[in-house]
Write a protein that binds this DNA or RNA. Structure first.
Lengths: 185, 185
DNA sequence: ACTAACATGTAACACGTTACATGATTGT
DNA sequence: ACAATCATGTAACGTGTTACATGTTAGT
């Protein structure tokens, strides 16, 4: 039940067409809430039907086929309600941890290469986040900037710290593998 | 496509009935792969139909209604194949980060209380993980223990470090909120 | 006019969630 | 004998994923 709220947030930040939303779900918003274009179009249709968003009149729409949407008061109210509501954290799901546990039973053959590959991917993501931080949140006195900016920085910090954790953990895991006896199981 | 493999891993560690599996998915395995009993029964039926597991004969089954399953060679082979196969990490999804981003647009009213509640939950989980670590992996010389034990410890370490990250990040977030002007937006 | 890329969608299916149903066992 | 709990399931629904379909713009 979060995709509609992710879309409302994105549209409040900037009215967009389906494809523009899809692009944004591949970058900023997608860093913590991914969605494919099929999901987005499906949800845009639903939100329009419920009167939470509306298509902007064609004149304001750029170039032929694009339909842009904006949030209506009902949508903003629903987003505010959802944001303030108490919600339980969902249990994490991580395939690599599951595979590692499985490898303790069926053998570690083959998994080490993928650990290396994941390490490289997380390092790349970490670098990307750090570049965004340098560009959008240049170092200044602590407690600086608009409330909005500080909240956005907080979210980015979570991304940076999470990727830092994964790179460290994967490095540690690979070091363990190096010490493991040749082939167990 | 991971639930069947989670179940195969659990059954290899110890043949179990549906309910016993459900219990284990509420503790150890559920820490990184949760599942409800409905999912588990559905998947047990499928795996049995595919010849990857089989029900143990009734004599070996404890008390009346319980059906216990064990993994067949085909199931073990499939798990080994899946564990060794290269898989892309799935993008994370985190509702709290989404809500924080939304609160930068519609206002932070109400979210602070839930940040506090989540902090308490993560602290409790962290404590639980640390107790498990003390009990199952008592400090000894580095590089000690069976390969299986070291892999299991590695997985537990990921859980501990993740919860540590969340408690630190939430603490930081609450400190930011304390500095924010009264009501923004 | 032809092709490639863009933009919006539909359809079918896999997976996860919630609510309910049913029989067996245990405790009183 | 009755109620509570245990244990296994079914049904309906919502969300996410994959594959495909269709029309549009831009470049050659």
């Amino acid at each position: 039940m979060s995709l509609p709220h992710a879309i409302l947030t994105a549209l409040l930040e900037k009215p967009s067409s389906g494809l523009e939303l899809t692009r944004r779900f591949d970058r900023s918003i997608g860093y913590f809430w991914s969605a494919t274009h099929q999901q987005i179009y499906r949800e845009l249709g639903r939100l329009e039907g419920e009167g939470q968003i509306r298509a902007l009149p064609a004149e304001q729409t750029a170039r032929g086929g694009k339909k842009s949407y904006e949030v209506l008061p009902a949508g903003r109210a629903e987003l505010a309600r959802w944001t303030a509501a108490s919600q339980d954290p969902k249990p994490h799901r991580d395939t690599m941890l599951l595979r590692l546990r499985a490898s303790a039973v069926v053998g570690t053959e083959g998994i080490e290469a993928d650990l290396r590959r994941h390490l490289a991917l997380h390092q790349r993501q970490l670098t990307e986040y750090r570049e965004i931080e340098e560009r959008d949140f240049p170092p200044a006195g602590a407690g600086t900037g608009s409330p909005q900016g500080r909240l956005q920085h907080l979210v980015l910090r979570a991304g940076i710290d999470l990727e830092t954790f994964w790179t460290q953990w994967l490095t540690h895991a690979l070091a363990e593998f190096a010490e493991l006896p040749g082939e167990n199981q």
